[in-house]
């Protein structure tokens, strides 16, 4: 039986505020999973605490709503204990980057084979509107009436710095792009880190309006594709040249990729760390677009794969080889010097 999006929905009422970007992300995930052809029981959604972390309750899969910031650690145990599971970790900017920052960087460097979706709305929603680690400097909130004093974290550069093997960004309401990124993330073996710009219409409405509004999006969003030049703009007449020195905006005659390349626009290589770091930083400079897509991807051994190999002795050997348990234990107990009394 072919599964449909509704097969991944639970009977629980979804309790996000009406208009929240989380609804879009939930719908996108529920649309995506049936395309993979695997039964619901093979998925585990694991989350921390926050608005985003209610996500597992709404997925008709296995789900674990854990404690604040610790979802990467729980996911490590789940995936390592049973590598056959498809583990999806759901987190937010506060959960993943503030209280759970340590676990996030270690999950990324470990390269645990999971998909990690970070819903970034640049605000604490569930606790009713304090500034978050991705809030801009000077942001006025209940807990920062004179403006936030902290520099924001860029989740993409953090992930790259933590040696993530897959780093991407997409947008809550862009279903087409989200599904493309989910497919890439799911295909990737290792921690697939996906930042999702998500609008909190109650406490931080419009924070991503430049890329969410139909009118402004084309001139503010750069859709990154591997092997393609970095071109954007309503007229597709602007591009980015990446170098060790940073990024440069280039204008050219629209309509032709060759012209863009000739003008110096970079053909993006997602396996190139220099490209990834430079691209991740471009929107620090006013006038530069926000990149969306896969920033970086490399293939390397997964944590759970290495653990399983050490555990079983080899890749082929199966875990539950029948053996004489009591003889095995006797051998262990009697290792070292023993002596007989009586």
């Amino acid at each position: 039986m072919k599964l449909k999006a509704k097969d991944f929905q639970t009977d629980q009422d979804v309790r996000w505020c009406p208009g929240c970007g989380d609804y879009s992300i939930l719908a996108n995930v529920q649309r995506f999973l049936p395309t993979l052809g695997s039964g619901q029981h093979n998925y585990v959604f694991v989350s921390g605490i926050g608005c985003s972390s209610r996500f597992p309750y709404y997925m008709n899969t296995y789900g674990f709503h854990t404690i604040h910031g610790r979802a990467p650690a729980l996911a490590t145990g789940i995936k390592t204990a049973n590598p056959d599971l498809s583990v999806w970790m759901i987190s937010g900017d506060g959960d993943a980057l503030s209280i759970g920052g340590n676990h996030l960087i270690h999950a990324l460097r470990r390269n645990l084979d999971i998909v990690l979706l970070l819903f970034n709305n640049r605000i604490y929603g569930l606790t009713k509107g304090q500034y978050s680690p991705t809030s801009e400097v000077g942001k006025v909130t209940k807990s920062s009436p004179f403006g936030s004093v902290d520099q924001p974290i860029n989740p993409i550069t953090l992930a790259l710095g933590a040696n993530a093997s897959f780093v991407a960004r997409t947008l809550d309401i862009d279903a087409k792009h989200s599904l493309e990124i989910f497919a890439e993330a799911n295909e990737h073996r290792g921690t697939a880190f996906v930042e999702i710009y998500q609008n909190c219409n109650i406490f931080n409405d419009g924070t991503f309006s430049s890329v969410r509004e139909r009118a402004t999006k084309p001139d503010n969003q750069l859709v990154v594709e591997h092997g393609k030049p970095l071109i954007y703009g309503k007229e597709q007449d602007r591009g980015i040249a990446l170098s060790a020195g940073g990024a440069e905006l280039i204008s050219f005659e629209p309509g032709d990729e060759d012209k863009a390349i000739a003008a110096g626009v970079t053909v993006y290589d997602r396996h190139n760390r220099l490209h990834a770091h430079a691209l991740a930083e471009i929107d620090r400079t006013p006038g530069f677009p926000v990149p969306m897509g896969v920033f970086y991807q490399e293939q390397r051994e997964t944590f759970d794969g290495i653990m399983q190999r050490q555990f079983h002795g080899s890749d082929d050997e199966k875990p539950s080889e029948p053996h004489d348990v009591d003889a095995t234990l006797s051998d262990l107990f009697q290792s070292g010097d023993t002596w007989m009394v009586g």
Binding site: V44, V46, F64, T66, I67, R70, P72, A73, L74, A75, T76, G77, I78, K79, T80, A81, N82, L85, N102, H103, H106, M307, Q310, F311, G313, T328, L332
Partner: peptide, 29 residues
């Protein structure tokens, strides 16, 4: 003793150590 059915994980901190253990229990270990 990994070959005797114990998978050891040196975690990034104490909290991760217990949380990973809970995750593993959830998954059947």
């Amino acid at each position: 003793h990994k070959r005797l059915g114990v998978m050891t994980f040196q975690a990034e901190d104490e909290i991760a150590a217990v949380c990973a253990a809970i995750g593993a229990s959830y998954a059947g270990s």
